[in-house]
Simulated scan of single mutants.
Amino acid sequence: MLIAQMTDIHIGFDPDAKPEELNRIRFRATLQRVLSSPNKPDLLVLSGDLTDHGDAESFSKIADLLRVVPCPILPLVGNHDTREELKRAFPDTPEDNGFLHYVVERDGLRIICLDSFEPGRHGGAFCKARRDWLKARLAEGNGMPCLIFMHHPPVVSGIDWMDPAADEDWIANFADAIAGHEQSIRSIHCGHLHRRLHTSFHGIPLGVTPSVAPLVALDLRPIDETRADNRALITTEPPSYALHWWDGENVLTHYESCDDWEVLAHYGEHLKPMIREMFAERSLDS
Rank of each mutant, 00 (worst) to 15 (best):
E21I: 04
L22A: 07
N23V: 12
N23M: 05
N23I: 05
R24I: 10
I25M: 11
I25T: 10
R26M: 10
R26G: 08
R26Y: 09
F27K: 01
F27E: 00
R28I: 14
T30P: 07
T30G: 04
T30L: 04
T30S: 11
T30N: 07
L31E: 00
Q32A: 14
Q32N: 15
Q32S: 13
Q32R: 15
R33K: 15
V34K: 02
L35W: 02
L35H: 04
L35K: 04
S36D: 13
S37H: 12
S37Q: 07
P38S: 15
P38L: 08
N39K: 12
N39I: 01
K40Y: 09
P41I: 03
D42E: 13
D42M: 10
D42L: 05
L43A: 05
L43N: 07
L44S: 03
V45L: 04
V45C: 02
L46D: 07
L46G: 09
D49W: 04
D49Y: 08
D49L: 05
D49T: 08
L50G: 01
L50E: 03
L50N: 05
T51Q: 02
T51F: 06
D52N: 15
D52P: 03
H53N: 14
H53K: 15
G54E: 06
D55L: 06
D55W: 05
D55F: 09
A56P: 00
A56D: 11
E57Y: 06
E57D: 11
E57K: 10
E57P: 02
F59C: 02
F59M: 06
F59D: 00
S60T: 12
S60L: 05
K61V: 02
K61A: 03
K61P: 00
K61S: 06
I62A: 04
A63D: 06
A63N: 06
D64S: 13
D64P: 01
D64K: 14
L65I: 12
L65T: 12
L66N: 09
L66Q: 10
R67P: 01
R67K: 15
V68G: 00
V68T: 14
V68M: 07
V68E: 09
V69P: 00
P70W: 14
P70G: 05
P70F: 14
P70D: 08
C71K: 01
C71W: 03
P72Q: 13
P72L: 12
I73H: 12
I73E: 10
L74Q: 08
L74C: 11
L74S: 10
L74R: 09
P75H: 15
L76C: 14
L76P: 03
V77D: 04
V77Y: 03
G78I: 03
G78A: 09
N79F: 01
N79Y: 02
H80C: 11
H80E: 09
H80Y: 08
T82F: 12
T82M: 10
T82H: 12
T82W: 14
R83S: 00
R83F: 01
R83N: 01
E84W: 12
E84P: 01
E84F: 11
E84K: 14
E85D: 03
E85V: 06
L86Q: 09
L86N: 04
L86E: 06
L86R: 08
L86H: 07
L86C: 08
K87P: 01
R88N: 13
F90W: 08
F90P: 06
P91R: 09
P91M: 11
D92A: 15
D92T: 15
D92P: 00
